[in-house]
Nucleic acid binder design. Sequence first.
DNA 1: GGGACATTCAACTATACGCT
DNA 2: AGCGTATAGTTGAATGTCCC
Length: 330
Amino acid sequence: DLDVARRELEEFIPRARTMSEHSIRSMAGRDLARFKEFKKQGVAVKFGRFSQKENSQLQKNIEEFLSLTGIDSAEKLLFSYRYPEDRETIQRLKAEYQFCEKLSEGIPRPWRLIYYRARKIFDPNNYKGKYSNEEKEMLKRYQAMYGNDWKKISVMMSRSNISIARKYSEIKSDINHGAWSEEETQKLINAVEEVIKKRIEKEEATFLSSSEDSSRDLSIEREKLYQNLPWAEIETQVGTRYWKQCKQKWLTVLRTRMNKGKRLYRGKEGLQAKINLIKRLYELKVEDANDVNWAEVCNAVGDVPSSYVQAKFYKLKVSCVPFWQKKTFS
DNA sequence: GGGACATTCAACTATACGCT
DNA sequence: AGCGTATAGTTGAATGTCCC
């Protein structure tokens, strides 16, 4: 019946096809019924970033659960292991008042993801801003002492373990800062090329085994050139840069090539490009910025990666819209 | 089977910098 | 000076795995 559950879930979450047994099992238990209920009401399961509406719904769900049970803080509720003496009581209250159900009320997403979102929002160790040099040094020292025990280190540094783990992977090796040399750039291009080729070959293999038709054209879809690339692998190949630097550099290389070196946002044409972009976004009539399909918006500007257009929109917003932080997308 | 945790790719935000 | 681009920094989503 695992297969049945998988098939049923696929209706709501296409990627269920490839998910691990464990994920399927837990979603079948907790989410399938909810998904069906949402469907009855004509609500689709959502992915990607939480909208403002969802975030405030989550906030509300937490507040209501706290007042229902008398637990005095969201941190106690969501990180009960930090309060050993209250832990048992909290556990009991959670079961008694159906924590899982209450938490996910009105949010059409898998329970697990709602839970993680809540833990991010309500962790006092999160949102601590920039790391100082002292902190970076401290992190390196602790890692040398305790290895990748991020949980332990996060307690000592009052930062969330995710933040710590990520920061460490960024600073673990001496990253070459500043402009890219010709040689480095070439190395990057080669690495990306190799990775994409490998990926296509693999797809081709599965494609051929399921079909007789072997005549496929050599061009590849644009998305394959920048979406879901294994950056960690590329980082190792390049050797001198952090994966994010690689990614950013690759996108600019790609953009320049796609547009044959033309500068898109300069002069009169640049102005027109901006106007097109704004018009296109307006026509979408979406409520939340998270609902924008940037791949669709791309051709308002030219043949560019979607992240480029996104970045442009951000820049435009920040420099032209007063009090943009306090405004909604619509 | 719930929950904690590490890891990885994506997105958002801020700043540096150079050209016109 | 103003603008566009490159680069740096932080947070978000998603998922495999391990443990109790």
